[in-house]
């Protein structure tokens, strides 16, 4: 990397001569190396899924959740520094709260995402802080229906039909593009999400992983909830089987 040693890459408040902010790019590196997270926006709901890498068999299964809840019907999956992800989630809850305090209803996701974008962006401005080392997928059902966004460490936030961040994002995006997302039901999307996470997981290189999923839809009464255990296991098993066929 040409940037190293030039001194232009040590602070978020420094541009390089060609106008780049290296610290933000490095923050992206923290995301690119960690477990994949995906989000699907389908006909009648949202599905979030993460590849939770398991480094020890002493860990409690199904604990240590990586998908968080921001509001009754807003879910968040992040990839990168986990502690940073919690910080962002806490802030998002505070933003939701302050919006409700004024308007007596939960914010549309677009509004929440805009506010979060500003928050994340502020950490790219000053030498006294570092940018967030995580990319965040936010999904919700609001007045406009199912919505899905990614917020990047730079503060950039775009809406998506299918979102993928982390190590396996390229392959995941390719898979997401093959789906007719706007025709899938939420339940079908659970199976697709499980399949994609299994597909992008690199068995050869990686440790074990646990599939974690959440959804928002008619079946959850519009709440953001973990995918029920039996459905999760069914999707997990189906994804494993499909992968074996795929390999053969």
């Amino acid at each position: 990397m040409t940037s190293i040693g030039t001194g232009y890459d040590l602070s978020a408040s420094t541009y390089s001569p060609d106008g780049r902010i290296f610290q933000v790019e490095y923050a992206n590196k923290a995301v690119e190396n960690s477990g994949t997270a995906i989000g699907l926006r389908v006909k009648d709901g949202i599905v979030l899924a993460v590849e939770k890498l398991i480094h020890s068999k002493l860990l409690v299964p199904d604990s240590n959740r990586r998908i968080q809840t921001i509001d009754r019907s807003v879910g968040m999956a992040s990839s990168g520094l986990l502690a940073d992800g919690r910080q962002i989630a806490n802030r998002a809850r505070d933003e939701s709260y302050s919006y409700r305090d004024v308007y007596k209803e939960s914010p549309p996701l677009k509004e929440l995402v805009q506010r979060m974008g500003l928050y994340v962006q502020a950490y790219t401005l000053y030498s006294s802080v570092r940018p967030f080392g995580c990319s965040t997928i936010l999904g919700a059902i609001d007045k406009s229906g199912p919505v899905l966004y990614i917020i990047e460490p730079s503060g950039v936030a775009y809406g998506y039909h299918g979102a993928a961040v982390g190590k396996g994002r390229q392959l995941a995006k390719t898979e997401l593009e093959k789906l007719k997302l706007s025709e899938l039901t939420t339940r079908e999307a659970v199976f697709e999400a499980a399949r994609i996470i299994h597909l992008v997981h690199d068995d050869a290189k990686e440790k074990e992983f646990e599939l974690e999923m959440s959804w928002i839809g008619a079946e959850t009464n519009g709440l953001h909830l973990p995918v029920p255990k039996d459905l999760l296991e069914e999707a997990d098993k189906k994804a494993r089987d499909a992968l074996e066929d795929y390999d053969e």
């Binding site: 809840t69 921001i70 009754r72 809850r93 939701s96 709260y97 007596k104």
Partner: peptide
């Protein structure tokens, strides 16, 4: 009512 509703939401989001 509104502070209790907030309380319940924050409990829900703790997960």
């Amino acid at each position: 009512q509104s502070i209790l509703d907030e309380l319940i939401i924050s409990e829900f989001t703790e997960g």
